[in-house]
């Protein structure tokens, strides 16, 4: 099964919807250990994407993602702006001019996105950041892909791993970002960034499920 530009648009719409739905929740999570604006910021970014989504419907996947990247970078206003913005930007690089991609190409794009986040935020796994959801998710993706899983199975494994990753952030002590100022007091809270990453993976899975 191939993923085309219309699927990417659908994915973005779903992701925007999920972020909006969970705006309060994300903000609540962020209030505990950050500056309490993650939900609001992410929603602002994705709403901006949605406002120009119609102009993107006939564009190639690389252009769509690059446009999203710029929207996120310029409107989010918090750390998640440059982080997700860089993620989308890096993901777009290998997809320029493409209207259709397969699961291998998707994995490569996602890996590039993770690389971008790590380059920007200088965080590694175990520091209570979005990387704690994304990195294990991509490992599950790759494993399922190699063992011959269907696209839906692959993304199901990805989402499950991301969820586990989110849960694992609870006992972690933050050493990056605003939460690191809290030191030990950051322990016991779920990381908002990891949670929003998980929601985005969920949007991917739901898009594919509907297609099948």
């Amino acid at each position: 099964m191939m993923i085309n530009n219309q699927d990417v648009i659908k994915f973005l719409e779903k992701a925007a919807g999920k972020i909006k739905e969970n705006k309060e929740f994300l903000t609540q999570l962020d209030s505990a250990i950050g500056d309490g604006d993650h939900g609001i910021n992410m929603d602002r970014g994705f709403s901006k994407i949605m406002s120009s989504i119609d102009t993107l419907r006939d564009k190639d996947i690389g252009t769509i993602l690059r446009t999203c990247s710029m929207a996120l970078i310029s409107t989010v206003g918090g750390a998640s702006g440059p982080l997700y913005g860089t993620a989308f930007l890096y993901a777009s690089k290998s997809l320029n001019g493409k209207f259709e991609i397969d699961m291998n190409e998707l994995l490569e794009a996602l890996k590039a996105a993770l690389e971008g986040i790590q380059m920007r935020g200088k965080a590694t796994e175990g520091e209570k950041t979005m990387i704690d959801a994304i990195a294990p998710a991509l490992r599950a993706f790759e494993e399922k892909l190699k063992s011959g899983g269907t696209p839906v199975e692959i993304l199901e494994a990805t989402v499950a791993a991301a969820k586990k990753g989110v849960e694992n952030t609870v006992p972690m002590k933050a050493t990056k970002g605003r939460a690191s100022y809290l030191g030990d007091r950051s322990i016991g809270h779920q990381d908002p960034g990891a949670t929003s990453s998980y929601l985005i993976f969920e949007a991917m899975l739901e898009t594919l499920k509907e297609k099948v």
Partner: peptide, 11 residues
């Protein structure tokens, strides 16, 4: 100042 200010500037 800090955090996103640094990252956004780098971007």
């Amino acid at each position: 100042d800090l955090g996103s200010a640094v990252m956004t500037t780098q971007t």
